[in-house]
């Protein structure tokens, strides 16, 4: 059995947050926390950098609007220009409506697929599911996983530290 890490279960988000803070202070860097709902500030504490997703979403909005507006311009000015009583071919107020909808659609697609891609989902296999204590089934548990790849990781020492932080269970996770 190759060891992926050690996972500890805590009863509430406060205990988990405290454990993350202490373990970071002790120099652990390769850690992940799991919770049934978003615990504010936890990811920053674990060393997550500010996400660039909002820029991707803005990019999606601009790309959607520009693509559709150009498509309309191509159709009315180049591919099929139709002179109706000398009115301008480029009647932009009418074109803005669909360009707006396209901006929203582009941004939403970027948000949805960009968000999934940044989280590397869908993911077929992840070692954390090997831990018998890790499940949503019993509801409301908060987990801290310390990876074996962490330079500070010593199996016995790390397990002892997690137990002393008030973990309900501490379990080794197979890779």
């Amino acid at each position: 059995m190759r060891l992926y890490g050690v996972i500890a279960a805590f009863a509430d988000p406060e205990a988990l947050t405290e454990a993350v803070r202490t373990m970071r202070a002790r120099g652990y860097r390769r850690m992940d926390a799991f919770s049934p709902f978003h615990v504010r500030g936890l990811a920053e504490m674990l060393g997550m950098r500010k996400t660039r997703l909002p820029w991707a979403i803005l990019g999606g909005a601009v790309a959607g609007a520009v693509f559709v507006y150009r498509l309309i311009l191509y159709s009315v000015e180049i591919d099929y220009p139709l002179n109706v009583g000398g009115r301008p071919l480029h009647s932009w107020p009418a074109f803005l409506v669909i360009a707006f909808e396209a901006a929203i659609l582009g941004a939403a697609l970027a948000a949805f697929f960009g968000g999934l891609a940044a989280n590397r989902l869908p993911e077929y296999y992840h070692p954390v599911f090997n831990a018998t204590s890790f499940t949503y089934a019993r509801g409301g548990k908060f987990y801290l996983l310390v990876e074996a790849a962490d330079p500070k990781f010593r199996k016995g020492v790390t397990k002892g530290q997690l137990t002393r932080l008030g973990a309900e269970t501490v379990e080794e996770v197979e890779a």
């Binding site: 992940d32 799991f34 996400t51 997703l53 948000a111 960009g114 999934l116 989280n119 954390v128």
Partner: peptide, 21 residues
Amino acid sequence: AIGWRGSAFHWARYQTVYFLM
């Protein structure tokens, strides 16, 4: 569920995306 495991990193991005959507 496409492998959702409730990781803190995932939740942080999830929150950003959900609010922006």
